[in-house]
Simulated scan of single mutants.
Amino acid sequence: MTALDDVRVTVPAGQTVGLVGESGSGKSTLAKAILGIVPVAAGRVLLDGAEVPVRELTRRVRMVPQDPYSSLNPRRTIGQTLAEAVDPARARVGRHRDRIEAALAEVALPADAADRYPHEFSGGQRQRVAIARALICEPEVVIADEITSALDVSVQAEVLRLLDRLRHERSLTMLFISHNLAVVEQVSDEVVVLHHGQVVEAGPVDDVFAAPQADHTRALLAAVPGGGRSPEGTIVE
């Protein structure tokens, strides 16, 4: 069985590309293939036009995972987790204290969060830690994989506002994976629509949402209240 067939996704530097599709369309499989987590029969990952060896991918491309509860080691403090992200070979909190505190401040968490354990935080706070962990090593590309789907509706908007701020402040190059088209519209510059492991439509977000060309894209938009569009300048809650 072929999970992905001739899928090509280009993420321009400093921009966010939304990857959308129904469950089973191949979104997360593509993310894992990019990171070298799952083997591929053919294909390449290029950064700045050059092919990247798998051993370099974990340093240059970082993921914010879907589940904030299982993504953090319960036996490690937040500081230890962030120190390991900076330097796995010398993951000492004291050595990286300044970077850890700066990373926590960037996601609106206090410095003393470094000394606490994951179970002491809410789901939304843990996802902030996961974002800090992804950004602390200054990756060239960030992959955000359904990062609000495991959160309560009341905190989803907070995390999305944080991510939207960070992508503008840092000029992040990001692949944003979601099944929620309204959210993709808010945080992405371009959108790629997957269906059964194939790209059925791609282009600037405004163009695709205003005049979708593929039947599947039109069906996805029709399934969202308001046709998938949201008030300009807002983050969908």
Score class of each variant (00 low, 15 high):
R44W: 10
S171I: 05
P53S: 09
E56V: 00
D152K: 10
A157V: 13
D206G: 05
R161V: 07
A105M: 11
A132Q: 08
L221P: 02
V9D: 06
P212Q: 06
E101I: 10
V45A: 03
A105V: 07
R126P: 04
L194M: 03
S230E: 15
P139I: 08
T77F: 03
P139H: 05
Q156S: 11
R167I: 03
D115S: 13
I143D: 01
G24S: 04
I143E: 01
H196Q: 15
V11M: 09
Q186T: 14
D6Y: 06
G14S: 07
P12F: 11
V45N: 01
P88V: 11
R59G: 14
T81D: 09
V141W: 04
K32T: 02
R59D: 12
T10Y: 07
P12D: 13
T58W: 14
P88C: 10
L151F: 00
M1I: 07
S230A: 15
T148R: 00
R161L: 12
S28N: 07
I100K: 03
A113T: 13
T148A: 02
D98N: 13
L46M: 14
E169Q: 12
V93N: 10
Q15F: 00
A202R: 15
P65A: 09
V191D: 01
P225V: 09
D115H: 13
G124V: 06
A42F: 00
L19Q: 04
L172G: 04
V7T: 10
A102K: 11
T217G: 05
P110H: 04
S178R: 04
A202E: 09
H179W: 00
A222N: 06
L172C: 04
V191M: 00
V93W: 09
A91D: 05
L135W: 00
L163R: 00
V155G: 00
V159G: 01
R97A: 09
S71N: 02
E237V: 06
R59F: 09
A214S: 15
D152H: 07
A89V: 14
F121G: 07
A89L: 11
N73C: 01
L163D: 02
G43T: 05
E158T: 15
D87A: 10
G18S: 08
A157Q: 10
Q127A: 00
P65W: 06
A3W: 05
A3Y: 05
D48R: 15
V129K: 06
V155I: 14
H119G: 04
V107D: 04
P118A: 08
R90L: 13
E138Q: 15
I136S: 06
T81L: 11
A150M: 12
P212G: 03
V187Q: 03
R170F: 09
H96Y: 09
A202P: 00
A223Y: 02
